[in-house]
């Protein structure tokens, strides 16, 4: 297997925010705050008009970002701006497939590489449709992060064996969004995935509380937290956009992120 530049060590805290929500310069500050709060990888969401895998929280964030004029090329360039401002952790671009098609797959990878992205995740490009795209990404040194879901079953082995960077496990049936409870079978599912995977296994969808993170640290290598953080951004949005309140609001956001990451660090030190 080729060595790809996304080499990461568990346990992984992988926060997700939407590029341009509530404004591009705020996104840069939030990225810096997340790195400071202990993020291992940043997932940067590209807003899309028709996000099939996303629940209401991320749909609203996407709408806010699109209203502000965010596009796929601008989101990629935002990564370049983050690099200049000192964001050093790996950044994964999370985008639906259609904007990539319109930009052109080669142009997309070239632009992503030029701006310092480290990988790509496309929720509506399943394994069967992803072959040529994955190969193209390898040419640019940009891994395509694979997903497995509770319904993947006999597909797990095939998907896991081709996984690059880390493997994203969808915790439960449904779209992104805060869930009150994760399924009881999640542990078994994650153990099954880990058996097949040669890369770290991170779990996402519905993770919003330190207690969940503490439980999950036992059965996987990392957590992705999206809607919970995006909801926090939504709450803080007015203050994040007020010049004299932004610093305090960013600090509040960072503290919240740190509280979600904390159980992973405990796991790390106790191992």
């Amino acid at each position: 297997m080729k060595t790809l530049p996304l080499s990461v060590n568990p346990p992984l805290f992988i926060p997700f925010i939407v590029a341009g929500d509530p404004a591009p310069d705020v996104t840069i500050d939030l990225a810096l705050a997340l790195e400071e709060a202990g993020a291992d990888i940043l997932e940067l969401g590209v807003p899309y008009s028709d996000p099939l895998a996303d629940g209401p929280t991320i749909q609203r964030a996407a709408a806010r970002a699109l209203d502000g004029g965010m596009t796929l090329p601008k989101a990629i360039q935002l990564i370049g701006a983050m690099r200049k401002k000192g964001v050093n952790i790996p950044i994964i671009l999370f985008t639906y497939y259609n904007p990539v098609l319109q930009l052109g797959e080669e142009s997309f990878f070239a632009l992503a590489q030029e701006n310092g992205a480290d990988g790509v995740l496309i929720p509506d490009l399943p394994f069967e449709e992803s072959g040529p795209f994955r190969e193209l990404g390898e040419r640019f040194g940009l891994p395509l992060i694979s997903l497995v879901a509770p319904t993947s079953k006999q597909r797990i082995e095939r998907i896991a064996s081709a996984a690059q960077g880390f493997l994203y496990c969808v915790s439960s049936l449904g779209v992104t969004g805060v869930r009150e409870a994760l399924p009881e079978t999640l542990g078994d599912f994650l153990r099954e995935v880990k058996r097949h995977s040669r890369v770290p296994v991170a779990v996402g969808f519905g993770i919003s509380a330190p207690g969940q993170v503490a439980m999950l640290k036992e059965v996987c290598d990392g957590v992705v937290v999206g809607s919970a953080l995006v909801q926090k951004v939504e709450q803080l949005a007015p203050r994040l956009q007020a010049p004299d309140e932004r610093e305090a609001a960013v600090a509040e956001f960072a503290a919240y992120a740190r509280s979600l990451a904390a159980p992973l660090r405990e796991a790390y030190s106790s191992r």
């Binding site: 895998a53 929720p123 509506d124 490009l125 399943p126 319904t151 993947s152 597909r155």
Partner: peptide, 19 residues
Amino acid sequence: YGRFGDFGGKFVPETLMLP
């Protein structure tokens, strides 16, 4: 693969592939 020439296919979240 569900293709009509260049068109069609299955561009859905992984959760729906088995269904």
